[in-house]
């Protein structure tokens, strides 16, 4: 590209702006960072200061101990995602960011439900647990604890089902996400 271009003309009307669009959907950002102290604070601080809202957040080690992965979800209806990723890229400890395509991504959350489910209700609940491929991880006379993994929608669906049985408490992790196929996320 060393040589100057041809003299063919261009009309200014042809030019379009790449606006910082709000996509209107949830975005899962998979961020590789240097595994150093304070990195999560830098990211959380950046979101707070720029007025971006984090919906879920998961931090964990990777196969390389120098590197950690942060998976966070952001609402693309509220924030221009390109501005979010560009600002993240400016952090020196951020190595790589992928805005995962929902169709090409496997996502999982894990949730624990503590439910009273006394008497006959309990066997009904356990049937639902089967349907959702959940596990019973703790049982007492007055409660069961059920573990569900899956995409966000599945966990929300189970929460709906469990509620009438006396939902005592629910805990959910953030989302982890991995690109489908052979390539690295």
């Amino acid at each position: 590209m060393g040589e100057p271009g041809t003299k063919e003309l261009l009309s200014l009307e042809e030019l379009d702006a790449a606006v910082g669009l709000r996509t209107g959907r949830k975005h899962v950002l998979s961020i590789l960072v240097e595994n150093k102290s304070g990195v999560l604070t830098r990211i959380a601080g950046l979101f707070a200061r720029r007025g971006f809202n984090i919906e879920t957040l998961t931090v964990g080690p990777t196969e390389d101990e120098q590197i950690a992965r942060i998976t966070l979800t952001v609402d693309g209806a509220l924030h221009p995602i390109d501005q979010v990723t560009k600002q993240l890229h400016k952090l020196i400890n951020v190595l790589k960011i992928r805005d995962l395509e929902p169709a090409a991504t496997v996502t999982r959350q894990l949730a624990l439900f503590k439910i009273a489910a006394e008497g006959t209700a309990r066997s009904e609940l356990l049937e639902f647990c089967e349907v959702f491929r959940g596990h019973v991880v703790d049982v007492t006379k007055r409660s069961v604890v059920i573990e569900i993994t899956g995409a966000e929608e599945k966990i929300e669906a189970f929460a709906q089902v469990a509620r009438p049985y006396g939902l005592i408490e629910m805990m959910r992790t953030g989302e982890i996400a991995m690109g489908r196929g052979r390539g690295e996320t």
Binding site: L12, L15, D16, A17, A18, V19, G20, D82, Q83, K86, Q87, H89, K90
Partner: peptide, 22 residues
Amino acid sequence: AKFIHIDVDPAEISKNVAAHIP
């Protein structure tokens, strides 16, 4: 106006005003 925006910091481009040629 259409905008050509030259900047070393990519986060400045289309931050406040959308660029036609970044």
